[in-house]
């Protein structure tokens, strides 16, 4: 028996919004430690890794490890039926071929449940090696989303250059060149407004704008985003999900042809 309950459906809606542009379907691996999802996008350029810890749920029970393949479009249709403040419970029997998603209004006067067919997905699990990153940048998630949106107008690619002075995002195309520099913040009143750079070595990498923009769909989950970079390895874009876990996106770099 698997049962996981969250106090607010809005968090699940935001998580789905953060992955559904990249993935059509995905397997949710449930164990007593929580829920994990790892999947590559269709073109195998990026990888999404979601971790939701069992202790972050209002109620969590998983008697046997369970892999639930879900069509994310179907799940989105179901979540659209929830009010943001509703409680949400996911339930499945061991070896079941369906999952039940139940919404309860705060006053318990409205209860709705939706049974969704599960899918058998061919899942290719990738081992992600530990990396000592040359640069780790923490910055406001809204600022990162704004930069990705702005630079996508100028080019398909964005160059991220990180030094100890700051981080520079550049795009160059038919219109011309765009550069956005962010310096490490001195003192800030609010932690969520800070730009913090931990640099071992300067690094310059090129990435496809459309994937960065897809990652920024996770912005409503977190006030800050963390970018981890190292020469010739995938960029890691991480959004923490408060008291519940995190979503990490890995993006393969573009290299000189």
């Amino acid at each position: 028996m698997f049962e996981a309950r969250l106090g607010q459906a809005t968090i699940l809606k935001k998580i789905l919004d953060a992955i559904k542009d990249l993935l059509n379907e995905a397997t949710f691996d449930c164990s007593d430690s929580g829920i994990q999802l790892q999947a590559m996008d269709n073109s195998h350029v990026s990888l999404v890794s979601l971790t939701l810890r069992s202790d972050g749920f209002d109620k969590f029970r998983c008697d046997r490890n369970l892999s639930m393949g879900m069509n994310l479009g179907s799940m989105a249709k179901i979540l659209k039926c929830a009010n943001n403040e509703d409680n949400v419970t996911m339930k499945a029997q061991d070896n079941a071929d369906t999952v039940t998603i139940m919404f309860e209004s705060a006053n318990q006067e409205k209860v709705s449940d939706y049974e969704m067919k599960l899918m058998n997905l061919d899942q290719e699990h990738l081992g992600i090696p530990e990396t000592d990153f040359s640069c780790v940048v923490r910055m406001p998630a809204m600022e990162f989303a704004r930069i990705c949106r702005d630079l996508a107008q100028f080019s398909e690619s964005v160059v991220i250059c990180c030094t100890k002075e700051g981080v520079k995002f550049s795009a160059s195309g038919d219109v011309g060149t765009a550069n956005i520099k962010l310096a490490q913040t001195g003192s800030v009143d609010k932690e969520e407004e800070a730009v913090i750079i931990e640099m071992q070595e300067p690094v310059t990498l090129t990435f496809a704008c459309r994937y960065l923009n897809a990652f920024t769909k996770a912005t409503p989950l977190s006030t800050q985003v963390q970018l981890s970079m190292c020469a010739d390895v995938p960029l890691v874009v991480e959004y923490a999900i408060k008291d519940l876990g995190h979503i990490r996106y890995y993006l393969a770099p573009k290299i000189e042809d």
Partner: peptide, 14 residues
């Protein structure tokens, strides 16, 4: 011109 690499070339199948 830069070329897009694939994520599976960096991470090994388990």
């Amino acid at each position: 011109k830069s070329k897009q690499t694939s994520i599976s070339s960096f991470f090994k199948k388990e």
